[in-house]
Design a protein around this nucleic acid. Structure first.
Lengths: 204, 204
DNA sequence: TGACGAATCTGATCAGTGTTCAGACAACCG
DNA sequence: CGGTTGTCTGAACACTGATCAGATTCGTCA
């Protein structure tokens, strides 16, 4: 996970850079947070890193590779934020809400990461690190939902429920349906309603 | 709404085209369905329409403008498909399900439209025709949800509920979480659970 | 210590892109 | 019939991602 902080242009002296992949990932995240996914360019990242235009391709193969690296950092950051957000909360339902809020809040916390981590088309979905990071975040949601769902509910339904909530949060983000103040209320409403529906189904 | 059918290259004779904006929108949709949003290019569209590379810019200003036109066609098509899908269905809950299925199914029906209509970043959200088309689809969902929700539920909650379902469907599409056979089951499950939650909240 | 292979990075080049702009052309309206 | 307006052309500009030979340095093994 790159930490997104360091001066943009420190003209280096040695021929070798030291940690060019890391620097490129940071610089790419910075560029993405400034100009969005449209304004992103491989060449601009190279320029900011003070390196030849062809250097990034050497490490990441192509633009997709670099963006995948950024997105992976994003999912790793997401998971740790989610765990931190749930820390100290006991009520299972409130834990799901806290987790979902963190998902939607990535756009504000890390606009650079968010610009690509919710864009499946920009990313190499088969990349090992990436898919592991994405799966980690989904698994955390699944287990949290399982704790909040009625006991003895089939695994398949838990899985469906987690994916439905995941999809709803994803929709909120990409549709910008939960920006600003309404976000917290709308997310809580969605989670509460859905979990209530799960309980109602279990009782009948 | 462009109908996406006509031979790609009919070398025209007159200097003026007749309906270049329409042809360009059709051709763009065709190109999008073949190569996806990545493979799209303004020049290729012009080539297929048998027209100078600068011609599309004249009518649509820039690439975003042309894609916005395609997306608008998509939403207009979506609304009529949704109305058709609900035709003959009386049960309010089943109507919501039918409507949501149509949303997710756009990717199979009209891959060209779907490639851009779910991509807010590629599109000029302020465009009059576009926002009217998108609002029309959302309004249809709202009224359908209102019919399925408990009577005397506040408008604000109806609105929240509709947007939550809209977001979930959008998430299913962009996450490809509801492809193939599981789609129908997962959508029905999500809608039923959510509506059950709404009823449970109303009772308490 | 020295040398050699492998990794890193450069600089130039290629094909392709969106956008702009003066000007050629045709339709429409007074 | 003539002029104005809108349509379309063709060339130009400033970019982009990707590739490749070759320069530079690191790491390793003798």
């Amino acid at each position: 996970m790159a930490d997104q902080s360091s001066p943009p242009e420190k003209p280096r002296t040695s021929y070798h850079h030291g940690d060019l992949p890391g620097t490129l990932t940071e610089e790419a995240a910075r560029l993405l947070s400034e100009k969005g996914a449209d304004g992103f360019s491989m060449r601009e990242v190279a320029r900011r890193a003070g390196v030849a235009v062809a250097a990034p391709s050497h490490h990441f193969g192509n633009a997709k590779g670099l963006l995948t690296s950024v997105a992976s950092c994003g999912f790793e950051a997401l998971k740790s934020h989610q765990e931190a957000a749930m820390d100290g909360i006991d009520d299972p339902e409130d834990r799901v809400i806290a987790l979902c809020k963190t998902y939607v809040d990535m756009g504000r916390r890390h606009p650079g990461y968010a610009a690509v981590m919710f864009r499946w088309d920009l990313v190499e979905a088969n990349d090992a690190r990436y898919s592991a990071a994405a799966k980690g975040a989904l698994d955390l949601l699944k287990s949290t939902v399982a704790d909040a769902a009625p006991v003895a509910m089939e695994d398949e339904k838990i899985d469906d429920a987690a994916k439905a909530l995941w999809a709803a949060m994803h929709g909120f983000v990409t549709l910008s349906l939960a920006d600003g103040e309404p976000a917290a209320r709308r997310i809580a409403f969605t989670v509460r309603t859905f979990l209530a529906g799960l309980r109602a189904e279990a009782e009948e």
